[in-house]
């Protein structure tokens, strides 16, 4: 972990949808090589937070800084060029392109801006290999398994060579045997100095890789701290697990 100047700094971030405060007053300051796990019940505002940082939604208040650059309300491609990559909770493959071409788009248009198609494809193959999609580059995305579709989502984000990586439930739908390699990759990326914001529902998994866990509830930060501390917190158990309990047992 190098220094403590934050790579990603978010202050007072707020997003209102009509009368609903989907995200309200969120502050973050993440240095390089830090993994922040974000948990919270359905509708807590986790994806909205990612959308606000990546520029896919504009905040109604607050600011987003990448390094020293204020990118509040900037368009998504500017934020991508500033070194922020993200995955989508509902995967968004380019269906008309092969798996390799999907990743090639990121290589060509990301901060690296590799214009030569041959070189971009080489780089794409390398990234596919890394996420475990080696040899599947020629497939159309529709032929991928659920797990592979999530790997493609991750490959596209990694192909941008980001400083900050926002992962919105990349483990969802993976079988237990598939989760461990994914967690190892997250650890590896942290070792390379990436700053990660990882949204996940599987609490044990996220606790294992996160330096800190932030709990969102009704758009606001309920608590933030080291995993064991946060997961032992009464309020978290009530807000998070209580919600799951009621979901499974609708009265």
């Amino acid at each position: 972990m190098s220094g403590d100047t934050p790579v990603l700094r978010v202050s007072g971030l707020q997003r209102r949808f009509g009368g609903l405060l989907a995200v309200s007053g969120v502050d973050l300051a993440l240095p390089a090589g830090r993994v922040l796990g974000v948990i919270g019940p359905n509708g807590a505002g986790k994806s909205t937070l990612v959308n606000l940082i990546s520029g896919h939604l504009k905040p109604t208040a607050g600011s987003v800084l990448i390094g020293d650059t204020d990118l509040t309300g900037a368009r998504p491609w500017r934020i991508a060029h500033a070194g922020v990559a993200r995955t989508f909770q509902i995967v968004k493959p380019f269906r008309g392109l092969t798996v390799a071409d999907n990743v090639t788009v990121a290589v060509m248009f990301g901060p690296a801006r590799i214009r030569s198609r041959a070189r971009a494809r080489q780089e794409a193959e390398r990234v596919l290999e890394r996420v475990g999609l080696g040899g599947k580059g020629g497939l159309p995305p529709a032929e991928l398994t659920v797990a592979d579709a999530r790997r493609l989502e991750l490959a596209k984000a990694l192909a941008l060579r980001p400083r900050v990586l926002l992962l919105d439930e990349v483990l969802a739908g993976l079988r237990p045997a598939e989760i461990d390699p994914a967690l190892r990759l997250i650890d590896e990326l942290r070792g390379e100095g990436l700053t990660l914001l990882v949204i996940e529902h599987i609490v044990q998994a996220i606790a294992a890789v996160s330096d800190e866990i932030l709990v969102l509830h009704h758009g606001a930060v309920l608590t933030q701290g080291p995993p064991d501390e946060v997961l032992g917190d009464e309020r978290v158990i009530e807000a998070y697990l209580g919600h799951r309990y009621t979901r499974r047992n609708p009265s």
Binding site: H56, W77, A80, F88, R117
Partner: peptide, 27 residues
């Protein structure tokens, strides 16, 4: 079709949010 622009246009066609996240200036 064969060049960089072709990739951008097809990406925009399939999903503009995803294209923008890949650094494509969709506008």
């Amino acid at each position: 079709s064969r060049g960089r622009t072709g990739y951008a246009l097809r990406a925009v066609n399939q999903d503009e949010d995803a294209a923008a996240a890949m650094g494509v200036n969709t506008t």
